[in-house]
Amino acid sequence: MKRFDLRNAEEFFFKSLMLTTTVLVACCALFIVGVITQKGLSSLSFEMLTQTPKGGFYLGKEGGILNAIVGSLLLAGGATAIALSISIPIAIYLNVYTKKNSWLAHLTRTSLDVMCGIPSIVYGAFGFTLMLTLGLRTSLLAGMITVACLILPILCRGIDESLRMTPKEMIHASYSLGATRSETALKVVLRQGFPGLLSAVLMAFGRGIGDSASVLFTAGFSDAVPTSLSQPVATLPLAIFFQLGTPFPEVRSRAYASAFVLTVMILFISLLARLLVRKLHRHVIK
């Protein structure tokens, strides 16, 4: 009888431990959103979302963060496009063309995993060196390339994992109809893995739009919305950083409002990802 009680107590202990940690994580997220909402919402205005900074914006004068919103979207969008055009061929090669125990596939996956762990400031430094070598100045293009390097491993491994789930029988079915490997890859494997691919893309985009260290030296900052790839570009994380660094309370409050905008954008992206994944699941064979 005693042993039974002990087992019950153990069960209760682990259950409460798991519940506590789960609730803790949810609380952290809510707390962060709560703080930026509380501190920033008062400064959030239509003007702030639709205007570029006027002179003295960082001293508390008029203007908005449109330059950073547009800049961030352009930068993360471009970076995702670059990273995607590199990732898809890699993921297809790894999953359709290499053998199961290929050393090249193993090496590639290990390298990507290592790259996932490199801090973004290192990518920033790397991007900066690359920029100097290529003769680029701080610009949208340099920022895109650097952020593309940063999100490439995340994107590539994400797509790789989703394509890896394709059942072997499905691939064989396609071959048995006389399809070549490339036809099978493009028409069957990519299609089966498409929801996973899309969520990897949106996750990478979210990572790219939120990163500040990699764009600090490479994209620079500008009060204007860029009109070409060679112009420097503002980003939301840096806009937050600069505004938060001022001694003026109203500007700091705007920093929180900017953080709020960025968080809502990222939230929107992840909700969109979930929605699309659910919708696109229709043809996926379980």
Partner: peptide
Amino acid sequence: GLLSQRPSPLPM
């Protein structure tokens, strides 16, 4: 034409 042990329809 090949019929396998478990049917494997394509994702379409």
